[in-house]
Computed example of a mutant assay.
Amino acid sequence: MSTTPTSLSSDSLQLDDMASQQAQSGRLPNGVYVPMLAFFTSSDEIDVPATQRHTARLVAAGVSGLVIHGSNGEAVHMSRRERRSVIEAVADAVRHETDSHAPVPIIAGCGAQSLRETVELCQEAKDAGATHAIILPPGYYAGILNKDAIVTYFHDVADRSPIPVLIYNFPAAANGVDLDSDTLLRIAAHPRVVGVKLTCGNTGKLARMVAETPKIRGGRDDFFVAGGSADFILQGLVVGGHGTISGFANLAPRACVRICDLYEQGSLKEARELQHEVAKADWLAIRYGFVGVKAAMPIFHGAGEASCAEPRRPFTRLDENGTAVKEIQQGMSGALAIEATLAAAAASE
């Protein structure tokens, strides 16, 4: 695999065209989507080789799509140039790891506080290789921004964006803005708003979105509804959700995919048991945030990924001999063993 974005061949352009057509014409595929971590070199530059290794690892694990510049991806620590370079690196790796029959959606975080900048980010993401944009509600002026203005904002973005849009409902990252199901459904009425990530953890809201979106979209089941955490993958599927967008899948993508597979096969007892172990591990990822997930990269993916544990300032790396990392090692040990077993089984096929 190349370590820098390459010029596009005719095959690559064909793959991009197919991915774009898929993005424009229908709902995202069901399954596990990974909000990728961001990796930096010792000189604090974007680590393209690590980014592309991780992309290849996730694609090989069978995930349905990749999300870049989410809250796990430290987009707020990057310049616009850096954000573009990460998308290009991921898109280049995806072209190397997939074929034209199975394009992998690349969803880029494009939220900003103004309509103008959000649309600019959507255009830049598309130019770099993204197929979709995911957008937080603007929350800086949350106290004076009403629901009508938020609905209009999303509709205006969807009108102007060159790629389809997903809603990202994560109150902690949007100054407490938590979109209720009525507001989300109003936004979802726009045909180019094609999904929602519910990191609010409200499975009742998730169930309402699944039930009601076809009614407001002309009977079409083309709206992707996903939970935003690995600790309720199965719960979301039970009420009709289409998958998950989970940071923990950076560490255990095969385990997360396996939960979905077991549910589809009707193996609920086994799915519950696996969900229990994933939820136990994900609690540590939630508690320590992206810094904790980064600290677990060499634990799950080998000592060669030790550099991937480094966040950007003002955050600092967790001490590998400290209490937090020891707690992560212990609390995630069950999920680590499951992931290793699934990887070994896949390698033997």
Score class of each variant (00 low, 15 high):
1 M>E: 13
2 S>L: 11
4 T>G: 04
7 S>R: 13
10 S>W: 14
11 D>K: 09
14 Q>R: 14
15 L>F: 10
18 M>D: 01
19 A>T: 09
20 S>I: 03
23 A>T: 09
24 Q>P: 03
25 S>C: 02
29 P>M: 08
30 N>M: 06
31 G>Y: 08
42 S>G: 04
43 S>W: 11
51 T>L: 01
54 H>N: 06
54 H>I: 02
56 A>N: 00
58 L>C: 08
61 A>Q: 05
61 A>H: 05
65 G>F: 09
65 G>A: 10
66 L>I: 14
73 G>E: 14
78 M>C: 12
82 E>G: 08
86 V>A: 12
87 I>T: 14
88 E>T: 04
89 A>G: 12
90 V>L: 10
92 D>S: 15
95 R>C: 09
96 H>E: 13
97 E>L: 04
99 D>C: 01
100 S>I: 14
104 V>I: 15
105 P>K: 06
105 P>Y: 00
110 C>Q: 11
111 G>E: 15
113 Q>M: 08
114 S>K: 10
117 E>I: 14
119 V>K: 04
120 E>C: 01
121 L>Y: 14
123 Q>Y: 00
126 K>T: 10
131 T>W: 14
131 T>G: 15
133 A>L: 10
139 G>Y: 00
139 G>C: 01
144 I>A: 12
145 L>K: 04
148 D>P: 02
150 I>G: 02
150 I>D: 04
152 T>G: 05
152 T>V: 06
155 H>G: 01
155 H>P: 04
155 H>Q: 07
156 D>W: 06
158 A>D: 12
161 S>F: 04
167 I>S: 11
167 I>L: 15
171 P>G: 03
173 A>S: 15
174 A>R: 07
177 V>R: 11
179 L>C: 03
189 A>I: 02
191 P>V: 03
192 R>L: 12
193 V>Y: 02
194 V>G: 08
195 G>E: 09
198 L>R: 05
198 L>C: 15
200 C>T: 05
200 C>L: 04
201 G>D: 04
203 T>R: 01
205 K>N: 05
207 A>I: 01
212 E>N: 03
218 G>N: 02
221 D>I: 00
222 D>W: 03
222 D>F: 03
224 F>A: 00
224 F>K: 01
230 A>G: 09
230 A>E: 05
232 F>T: 03
233 I>Y: 11
234 L>Q: 10
235 Q>K: 08
239 V>K: 09
240 G>T: 02
242 H>R: 04
242 H>M: 05
243 G>S: 03
244 T>C: 13
245 I>M: 14
245 I>P: 02
246 S>A: 15
249 A>N: 08
250 N>T: 12
251 L>P: 07
253 P>T: 00
253 P>N: 01
254 R>L: 06
255 A>H: 03
255 A>C: 11
256 C>M: 05
258 R>W: 13
260 C>Q: 14
262 L>F: 10
269 K>D: 07
274 L>C: 00
274 L>S: 01
276 H>E: 03
283 W>Y: 07
283 W>M: 06
286 I>K: 06
287 R>V: 01
287 R>D: 02
292 G>F: 08
295 A>M: 07
296 A>R: 10
299 I>C: 04
299 I>Q: 12
304 G>L: 06
307 S>Y: 00
310 E>M: 11
310 E>Y: 05
311 P>H: 03
311 P>Y: 06
316 T>E: 11
321 N>Q: 15
321 N>I: 04
322 G>D: 12
329 Q>M: 10
330 Q>M: 07
341 T>D: 15
342 L>V: 11
343 A>V: 11
344 A>F: 08
346 A>S: 11
